[in-house]
Design a protein around this nucleic acid. Structure first.
Length: 216
DNA sequence: ACCCAGGTGGCCC
DNA sequence: GGGCCACATGGG
């Protein structure tokens, strides 16, 4: 993928906190709408955990409105900020410095943080070895015939067991799946043939949707 | 007027 | 384990 799409050197936020905020706001939402929301938060002084905790909920809601599900997402951000204050004396880095397993478990107890958001934070905010399985990853692995549904954990293990555990590489790998997905692996019916198929180890499959053909 | 976007939680079988 | 629904805005 890197040979085809180039080195992405992609990062979903300027700071660890921005990664956390972005990870929550981008849930089932286009990134451009998330950027607007983050800009609004900053412009209105409603960005840092402290600012979020002190803001009125309705102000925060209007700031994140453009990212969709804005009432839920405002509540989720507030919940994370409150958690950091109570459990980590207000320090995000204290939270992130735990062991990866402990951090992942902890993140998953927070309302609105599921496996993908947790891994996003683990990989890009804490720099820990994990893989972010997003909708593009699932579509690509399935349509290429490389992996078949084992649930989120199944796909995550599939990648981790074959790709190694260098955080830097795993960050890049996820970025490449996003680029691949946006270009070649959208939902029906606007999928186009992908030159990457030539690199597929199974030598079959298609990024188009549908059953995987036998042979080639 | 549709369909889709880097999900999550609740509820059901 | 899987299927279905609500949650909501902005772009094509």
């Amino acid at each position: 993928m890197e040979g085809h799409f180039g080195f992405q050197d992609w990062w979903p936020g300027e700071t660890a906190w921005e990664v956390v905020v972005g990870a929550i706001l981008t849930q089932n939402t286009a990134w451009r709408n998330v950027e607007k929301a983050i800009d609004q938060m900053k412009q209105h002084g409603l960005f840092s955990p402290k600012e979020i905790l002190e803001a009125s909920p309705s102000k925060l809601e209007s700031a994140v409105r453009s990212s969709g599900y804005y009432r839920q997402k405002a509540r989720r951000l507030l919940g994370v900020a409150a958690h950091i204050r109570q459990r980590h004396r207000g320090s995000l880095s204290r939270m992130l410095h735990q062991s990866p397993a402990a951090l992942r478990r902890e993140l998953l107890t927070l309302p609105g943080i599921g496996p993908e958001t947790a891994d996003d934070i683990l990989l890009y905010a804490a720099g820990r070895a994990t893989f972010v399985v997003d909708a593009y990853t699932v579509r690509a692995l399935e349509r290429l015939g490389l992996a078949q549904s084992g649930g989120y954990e199944g796909y995550r293990r599939y990648v981790l067991s074959r790709f190694g555990r260098s955080p830097r590489r795993l960050q890049e790998f996820h970025a490449l799946f996003v680029v691949l997905g946006k270009q070649y692996c959208k939902k029906e019916p606007r999928c186009v043939p992908c030159p990457l198929l030539d690199l597929c180890p199974t030598g079959r499959g298609s990024l188009r949707r549908g059953p995987i053909p036998e042979g080639r």
